[in-house]
Design a binder for these strands. Structure first.
Lengths: 254, 254
DNA sequence: CCAAAAGTGTTGCCTTTACACCCATGT
DNA sequence: ACATGGGTGTAAAGGCAACACTTTTGG
């Protein structure tokens, strides 16, 4: 696979289509969880000074899933991330030439000015392990509270909406706890995570019972101190039991 | 939108990329239900003599959903079809130049020989209303039992697999009965439909109760005669109640 | 009249929901 | 000490699976 060196920005703008497929891009909605808030990782374009999703293009001989993974690794420093393709956005208005403000001084006729169909992925990462890194075209990369996203570039707000929707629908089948929380966590924290994603309150007592009945957690002889009031137990995922249960079609019940 | 006239086949092969986006295609898995079997509509290539999914390309200014709809209408004669985008297939092996047998006498360098990412849609249609019609490149278009699909072109078998999977997952939320069955139908027929899609037996009595409890059907003063034994009642969807229930998040319970 | 399929009802179980009680901790 | 959040238990409600019985039809 011919790869484009990072520093050759003008080469990318002028002749990127020799390396990448035209008309196809990949955008990633990277979810994290911190201070009881669901977060999304965004980038700020150098020239537009507007925020956008981390995204990129697909090398001519690269699987689209791999493109998404490549982008994720570049932005977060992590590999082996939980990743799901959720939707292809194919509105013909998805092109810069139909916008007033255009990045990179793009000229009419550039391959980047043409219409793109973007494949949307969402990813679940452990907030504390991420080292947000801007790419060559952006000067900032940071977390945003999912409820306070600014007006983004193109249709990226819509992409986040759809990603959230997909995340909610898949909450039953996917290990959001295992991927979004740190290694050790408390039941109230896990509950907060579900409540945030579902955007509704759950009964504390029933939640615990339900989770523990799944028999995929391991309670440690350790409590989380520091907060006021009674210190809650810390839990780990019992990865062995958890993997087994997933194979048998575990459902979390949401 | 510049449209390509049908008869200009050579023009399409040589310069189709002037009308359509490169690297992007749309494939439709059209489901029908007949004689208690789930069916899929397939086409046979004129030259390859191999079967494939109905598919096509996306005009440069056309929404991908509309491309899918266009293809559906051309093949089935129906519009207003229930349609769902379910997955984007982005394996780099999806290209003819990596195959032994190539259709249309395509030469190296042709835009059609390049790699395509295809957006998969599935559609639910009423079997009896469909008039299967081959396109310009195929000489046959007919229904195949979903359990007896032959070896198809490229990764089209895999696309059908994924479509079925998606259909099963969405069985809870989507009106498979309303779209796959004729206007009037019996409960045993509806049950057969669910059993076929889910590939498992359901209890006749519990099924009826559950369905009727949804309060979206209207029982007619009419029975389905002709079969041996007791004649079952005919039902219609009460579209008003049904639409209302769907908006409120009706779940069928599968 | 009989076999097979269709319509209706009942029961018991198990999951979910609601809520009561006690315990621990920092202020 | 006390307000607040955390851990555990129980009882009622509702949904679902299992099964019995009657009715209808073509042969």
């Amino acid at each position: 696979m011919k790869k484009l060196k990072k520093y050759k920005e003008q080469e990318f703008i002028d002749r990127g289509y020799q390396y990448f497929m035209r008309h196809i891009s990949v955008d990633c909605v990277i979810f994290g969880f911190h201070e009881n808030q669901l977060k999304v990782l965004l980038l700020k374009w150098k020239d537009l000074q507007q925020w956008c999703l981390p995204g990129g293009f697909v090398y001519k001989d690269e699987h689209i899933d791999l493109s998404a993974r490549r982008i994720l690794t570049e932005r977060t420093g992590l590999d082996n991330i939980f990743l799901k393709q959720f939707y292809a956005f194919g509105d013909p208005n998805r092109e810069w030439s139909k916008r007033k403000n255009v990045p990179l001084n793009l000229k009419k006729g550039s391959w980047l000015m043409e219409r793109f169909v973007t494949i949307g992925y969402w990813a679940l990462v452990e907030f504390s392990k991420v080292k947000p890194a801007p790419d060559e075209l952006s000067d900032e990369c940071r977390w945003w509270d999912v409820n306070r996203i600014p007006k983004l570039v193109l249709d990226h707000n819509n992409i986040i909406e759809k990603a959230l929707e997909s995340l909610r629908i898949n909450l039953n089948d996917y290990p959001v706890g295992n991927t979004l929380l740190p290694d050790k966590f408390t039941m109230p924290e896990l509950q907060q995570l579900y409540e945030t994603i579902l955007d509704k309150k759950l009964d504390r007592r029933n939640f615990q019972k339900k989770m523990i009945a799944l028999d995929i957690f391991q309670r440690l002889n350790e409590r989380k101190h520091g907060g006021a009031h009674k210190a809650p137990y810390l839990y780990k995922f019992n990865q062995k039991k958890y993997q087994k249960a997933m194979k048998q079609g575990l459902r979390f019940g949401f």
